[in-house]
Structures are given as structure tokens and as C-alpha cells.
Computed example of a mutant assay.
Amino acid sequence: MGEGADLFKALGDATRRIILDELTERDSQTLFEICGRLTMKHGLASSRQAISQHLAVLEEAGLVHTRRQGRYKFHHLDTSPLRAIVERWPARREEPS
């Protein structure tokens, strides 16, 4: 894949965008917590394995980082890769007439 392809792949899936929304609302969640929030708030009845795979894609794109604490693995949002999109296609402001 080319530069940024992992990022676009990660953002291209609705479930992954919902996971990012949940981590924006409440950072540092375990897989169990994320699954619970997706089921309760969004009616997504995905398996823990499916959500784990979505998290792996987000991690590959640099949008999620993990931290182990004992037997728990906490997921953290990192929006810094999104800067590459903004820098590639900066907003153009129209001059006032």
C-alpha cells in the first residue's frame, strides 16, 4: 500500500469510525469496555474478535496505541496521523470580495 493507504483503509469502515468516536468520548478503554459501549450505544453486536481486528487496523494506521497494565490492554486514540491529510490537502480560503 502507498503512503497513507493504511490511514484511509482505517477510516473507510463505519465500525472503525464509531470506535474512534468512542475513544474520543472516553480514552483508555479495554477491549471489553469498547465492545460494551458499541453494543449498548450503537446496537453493534460484533464479536470481541471482530472488534479486536478493527482495533488492529486502527493501530496499524497509527490512530490507536495500546498500553498493557497487568493483564489488561488499554486503547488510546492518537489523531496525529490525520495531520498528513490536512497537510496534503490544505483548506483554501477564498479572498473577500
Rank of each mutant, 00 (worst) to 15 (best):
L23G: 01
V64F: 03
G70D: 08
D13C: 14
H54I: 00
D21A: 01
A50W: 03
A10L: 12
L58F: 07
H65Y: 09
A14T: 14
K9I: 05
L11N: 14
H42D: 13
T15S: 11
Y72A: 03
R37L: 08
L38P: 03
E60L: 07
I18N: 10
D21S: 05
Y72T: 07
E22K: 00
G70H: 06
E59M: 11
A50T: 10
I51N: 01
F32E: 14
L23Y: 11
H54D: 06
L31S: 06
L44M: 15
I34P: 12
L44I: 15
K9Q: 02
L58P: 06
A56V: 08
Y72F: 10
R67L: 02
L63H: 13
V57E: 06
Q53E: 09
E59S: 13
K9G: 09
R17Q: 09
C35E: 02
R17Y: 03
E59K: 13
G43V: 05
R16L: 11
L11H: 12
A61I: 08
L31R: 02
L63N: 00
L63V: 11
S52M: 02
Q69H: 13
S47P: 12
R26G: 05
K73Y: 04
G70T: 04
V64A: 06
T30P: 05
H42M: 01
A56S: 09
L77P: 04
Q29L: 15
A61Y: 06
F32V: 15
Q49D: 13
D78Q: 13
L55N: 05
S28T: 07
S28I: 07
R26C: 04
D27N: 15
S46H: 05
A56F: 04
R68G: 07
H75N: 07
G70F: 07
I18E: 12
K73H: 09
C35R: 02
A50H: 12
I51W: 03
G43K: 08
T39R: 14
G12Q: 07
S47N: 05
E22G: 02
D21F: 03
T79K: 11
A10R: 09
E59G: 10
F32G: 09
G43E: 13
K73M: 08
